[in-house]
């Protein structure tokens, strides 16, 4: 289970950030973070993955506290940022080997997973090229391969569909469903409400650094359409 208790993160020199955010996700949950730009989605994600240390609160994953045991916590997650930052002078293969070494993935498992992911994301040729020659979509695909390679228990994706071609998008949606059915927790931020409606069983709506909706998709859709609810809770009137 992923448990987020009262985390707050306010950026220095501004009053922007997130305050007192709490959330619980269970095995098999697929949860979408939606909200306007600057609502706090990415800040929350970066706090969970350990990029932004939060001011207060705690995050635990299957009983492991992020601040008390960051290495073990991070070994259980797979994260894709909104803008992939990679070593430009490396080939995709060298990058994947680096990530595999950091996660201490067994060579047999690594080769098996890599063969599957490279084939599904049609990356078998591109993986031998330099990252500096990749387009945004190719970098996204490389990051997806790197985060799925070690079979994480929690997958966190920040706007994962931006820049992906239809085939890669289809693969990612199928993979999210398939991994969730195996007990993996999936959390992702998006602006594409239609996909969230079809894929997720949980939804969190952010507005000005606070969670204004945190419920199951089933409950939410009983009241109105996702689009209507989003407009309703994020309007300032």
């Amino acid at each position: 289970m992923l448990s987020i208790k009262n985390i707050s993160k306010i950026y220095k020199g501004s009053n922007k950030g997130i305050s007192n955010l709490s959330l619980e996700l269970h095995q098999g949950d697929i949860c979408a973070f939606i909200g306007a730009n600057g609502a706090g989605k990415t800040t929350t994600i970066k706090s969970i993955v350990g990029i932004h240390p939060f001011d207060k609160g705690e995050v635990t994953l299957f009983g492991t506290n992020l601040q008390a045991n960051p290495a073990h916590f991070k070994s259980m997650i797979g994260y894709s940022p909104d803008t992939p930052a990679l070593y430009p002078n490396m080939t995709g293969k060298a990058y994947l080997e680096l990530i595999a070494s950091l996660y201490e993935i067994d060579e047999g498992e690594r080769n098996k997973n890599l063969a599957y992911l490279l084939k599904e994301l049609t990356f078998e040729t591109a993986v031998h090229e330099l990252i500096s020659s990749y387009s945004h979509g190719m970098k996204q695909r490389l990051v997806l391969i790197s985060l799925l390679m070690h079979n994480p228990k929690l997958i966190i994706l920040d706007e994962p569909f931006v820049g992906l071609d239809p085939n890669a998008t289809r693969f990612l949606i199928d993979e999210m469903k398939s991994r969730a059915s195996e007990g993996v927790i999936i959390l992702y931020s998006t602006h594409v409400l239609e996909v969230a409606e079809k894929v997720c069983n949980k939804l969190v709506i952010f507005h000005k650094g606070e969670v204004v909706v945190n419920d199951t998709m089933e409950h939410i859709l009983q009241k109105a359409s996702l689009d209507e609810i989003f407009r309703d809770v994020t309007s300032d009137d």
Binding site: Y79, P81, T83
Partner: peptide, 14 residues
Amino acid sequence: NSGVQGFIFTRPVS
């Protein structure tokens, strides 16, 4: 500044 450092810290690296 490029974000590579942040990305490394999402891995099990202290």
